[in-house]
Amino acid sequence: METGSRFFTSWSGGKDSALALHHAIRSGAIPELLITMMTETGERSRSHGLSRDLLTLQAEAIGIPARFAAATWADYEDTFQETVAGVVREGVRIGVFGDMDIESHREWVVSTCARAGATAELPLWGRERAGLMEELVADGFKALLVAVREPLLPPELLGKVIDRDMIRRFGEAGVDLAGEKGEYHTVVVDGPIFRHPLPVILGERVLRDGVWFVDIEAATG
């Protein structure tokens, strides 16, 4: 990306979108907006099940405005495209995405952005997994596990920070180190893109469709 380019980030709240945002900022581009797709109620993110309140506070800790769009799976693509088109009308024509190597995902973001008048940038595309995960840790990102798929990973890992030991455990379990096949999801609460850490507390664990989730809330006081 060119220095001074204005962009939005497709934001899950997790490590991939955080790393992609970090790469874009380091290139000299200017972040304008975090876009998160929500369930039809608008209260939880589609990708990671994070609450709107938590995502709002996360965006404030980073210092980039958040924009939310609620959709069912049936109208997800149309809603996302309309949201991007609205951002384009505001003068932001580049979108940054955290996809790594699933070709169907790349094709979707490229084509959907193009129909909305935007260009998709994928700074992590084609990067080797171990290197990306080492970068995550070495650069000081604090990513907590908020979802794990059974029986690949145990629910006891929920709320734990991804560090080098955790990456080793992923390798021993035989799962994708970056969780690209849905083995786990994260929320990032600190790192080089943050103005200040986001303190959180762990809530209830629930099992939905073979995936364990833990509710994460911002700590107050």
Rank of each mutant, 00 (worst) to 15 (best):
L50P: 00
D53Q: 10
L54N: 01
L55D: 09
T56Q: 14
Q58A: 03
Q58I: 09
A61E: 06
A61I: 12
I62P: 05
I62D: 07
G63H: 11
P65K: 11
P65I: 12
P65S: 08
A66D: 10
F68R: 11
F68L: 10
A70H: 08
T72N: 01
W73P: 08
A74R: 15
Y76L: 04
Y76F: 14
Y76N: 02
E77W: 02
E82S: 15
E82I: 12
V84E: 01
A85S: 01
G86T: 09
R89E: 14
R89G: 05
R89F: 06
E90T: 10
I94G: 03
G95R: 11
V96W: 13
V96H: 08
D99A: 01
D99T: 02
D99V: 05
D99K: 01
D101I: 15
I102W: 00
H105G: 06
R106M: 08
E107N: 00
W108M: 06
V109T: 13
V109C: 05
V109F: 12
V109D: 07
S111C: 07
T112R: 09
A114L: 10
A116F: 02
T119L: 12
A120F: 07
A120N: 09
L124Y: 07
W125H: 05
G126V: 10
R127A: 13
R129Y: 14
G131S: 02
G131Q: 02
G131P: 04
M133T: 06
L136S: 02
V137I: 14
A138R: 15
D139W: 15
D139L: 15
D139Y: 14
G140K: 06
G140C: 06
F141R: 05
A143E: 07
A143T: 09
L144V: 09
L144D: 03
L144H: 02
L145E: 10
L145V: 15
V148P: 00
V148Y: 04
E150Q: 12
P151L: 07
L152V: 13
L152A: 13
L153G: 03
P154H: 08
P154L: 12
P154W: 11
L158Y: 01
G159C: 04
K160S: 11
V161D: 09
I162D: 00
I162H: 01
D163Q: 05
D163A: 04
D165A: 15
M166V: 13
M166Q: 11
M166S: 09
I167D: 06
I167H: 10
R169M: 14
F170G: 00
F170H: 07
F170W: 07
G171P: 00
G171A: 04
G171H: 02
E172F: 03
E172D: 03
G174Y: 08
G174F: 08
V175W: 02
V175A: 00
V175C: 00
